[in-house]
Design a protein around this nucleic acid. Sequence first.
DNA 1: GGTTTCATGATACGACCGTATCAGAAAAGT
DNA 2: ACTTTTCTGATACGGTCGTATCATGAAACC
Lengths: 206, 206
Amino acid sequence: MPKRVDHDQRRRHIAGALLRIAEQRGLQHASMREVAAAAEVSVRLVQYYFHTKDELLLASLGYLAEELGARVARRIAALGSPPTPRDVVSGTLTAILPTDPESVRLTRTYAAFYSLVLAEPDLTRHGAPHPDLLERLLAHQLRAAQQAGAAHAELDPGLTAAGLLALTNGLGSSVLGGQRDAEAALRILTYHLDRLFVPSAGHTPP
Amino acid sequence: MPKRVDHDQRRRHIAGALLRIAEQRGLQHASMREVAAAAEVSVRLVQYYFHTKDELLLASLGYLAEELGARVARRIAALGSPPTPRDVVSGTLTAILPTDPESVRLTRTYAAFYSLVLAEPDLTRHGAPHPDLLERLLAHQLRAAQQAGAAHAELDPGLTAAGLLALTNGLGSSVLGGQRDAEAALRILTYHLDRLFVPSAGHTPP
DNA sequence: GGTTTCATGATACGACCGTATCAGAAAAGT
DNA sequence: ACTTTTCTGATACGGTCGTATCATGAAACC
């Protein structure tokens, strides 16, 4: 037998090369040859670990989702304990908004996959349980804030959570599109959060 | 000289074929040959009216923007006169949200161009004065509503307008992505509008 | 009414695409 | 030591891409 290699690591390495190309130059340029070159690997190797290009695309998208999920989780975990519901909401949403290099990279890469997913929905038939999950997390935090008197009681948590997520996604698009810088987007997001949560001692005293 | 032909009409016809392909199968399939076939025209003709593919893509995007702008204008013009600011805001936003076949077509097509524009920003160096324009329109309407006592006075019109636009774009993405249907998106949008405008006789009495 | 000019068609060229094939190196098991 | 299995490399094939070339139709102008 040959030297045993960590297949998963190899797959991540190659998929990472594809994600890098997708982020920087778009999926149009993510050909097998370009991916192999970016991973400093032969084309045959890419074929070996991913039998077909669709498989490579799908796996890469999976790794990307994993990475974004990890970032959100890390952000939430890094909050002081116990974090206020607003901290959780704000932390989650700013983790998705392209403000720092990592989030720019992640959202740019996601954007590269967006139209592909729209055009070929079969590719992700079994994917994306995420958005609904995030929405539920946010709604749950909003409810907790209401019970603690930290958010206005008449808010509908579900509709508000969905709105916040859509707002953040829309802001992210405009930032990536260059119509707004990250600072302006963050200002808009914070403004809307301020309208949901009642002011407390710890937060942005005027 | 040959029979004189309306060049602009021909260009629109060909660009329309590209837009149709982009919407239905994505820009990946919008090759010169496919566009020509969809327009029932020879490849040479496509080359004749658009010297290069980039030119075709750029022109098509322009026509698309024109079409969306016309839809918004038509929607606003169709409002009773004088329309309330809320009607204008709501009409503008629902014109953008993919709720009926035409708006689905427009937003799907836009989405197809999205990642291309992100990857090749040079293509649209001179384009897209639109978003800022819409934002200003919404902000202006919000201010008018405030002066008429129809919207809460403490709102920041600029930030709120930007938020509404981003919210609508985000909702549109989720509808196109199939995570939500148009009805749910409209419900979320209406909920947020309800939180901005003070209830009046004409609107959704409980 | 010939000629110029605009408009259109058929076809070819080189490049790159995804994938398949052929072959070989390298390490574990016996 | 030798076989067997896992891994890697070079190269070829058919297809499609964007674009260029060559050729021709048909109408307006002198």
